[in-house]
Amino acid sequence: MSTGFFNEFWISKMMIWRGIYTCLFVSFSAILIGTLLGIVVGLFLTYGNFFTKFLARAYTDIIRGIPILVLILTFYFVLSVIHINLSAMQAGITSLSIFCSAHVAEMLRGGLQNVPKGQIEAAKAVGLGFLQTFFFVSLPQALRQILPTWTNTAVEIVKGSTLVSMIGVVEITLVMQQIIGRNFLTMQFYALAGLIYFLIGFSIERTGKFVEKKVAIK
C-alpha cells in the first residue's frame, strides 16, 4: 500500500496544499473578525457605563473560561437545535473568532488602562477632547503594548484551528488523517503536520517581532 514517504507525499501534495489553505483561511478570518469584535468589546470593557461594562465583562469571562473545542461543538451542534444551521466552516470560524475576541478585548483593556493617568490629565490640560486623547495618546501606546500578546493569540488561533477537524473541516490535521488512513505512515505525516504548523506559527511570530521593532518608540 504505502510506496515510501516521499512518493506518498508527492501523490498527496494537492490535498496537503488545500489543507494548508483551509487552515490559513479559517485562522486568518477568525483573527481578523475576532480582533475587530474584540476591539469593540474591549472599548466597552474600558469606557462603558455600568450596564455595557457588565455585559462586556460577562462576555469575556465566560468565553475565556470555555475550551475552544466546546465552543466549536456548541456552534456546530447546539445552534442547530434552534434552527440556526451553520456549516462546519462557518461554525469553525465563528467559534474561533469569538474565542479570539474575548482575548483581544481583555488585552486592549489592559493596554488602555496601563497608559499613565498623568498623560490623560496632561492631554486634558492641553485641551484634547475624549476622542482626541483616545486616538493620539491612549491608543497608540496601548497598541504597541498589546502587540506581543496579540501575536501570541494569533498563533494560539492557528493551533486552535486544528480542532475544527472534529466537525469535518478538511484542514491540515484532517488531511493528514485522511492520508494516513490510506497509507498508514502515521509518524511521517503527523511529523509533517507538526512541521507545517511550526512554520506557520514561526512566521507569524517573526512578523510580529518585525512589526514590534518597526513601531517601537526609540
Binding site: 490535498m15 484532517l174 488523517q177 485522511q178 494516513i180 488512513g181 490510506r182
Partner: peptide
C-alpha cells in the same frame, strides 16, 4: 468518514 479503509477512505487521487 474519510480515514478507514476499506469502508471509507481517500484513494491516491484524493
Amino acid at each position: 468518514g474519510s480515514g478507514n479503509p476499506p469502508f471509507h477512505f481517500l484513494d491516491a487521487s484524493g
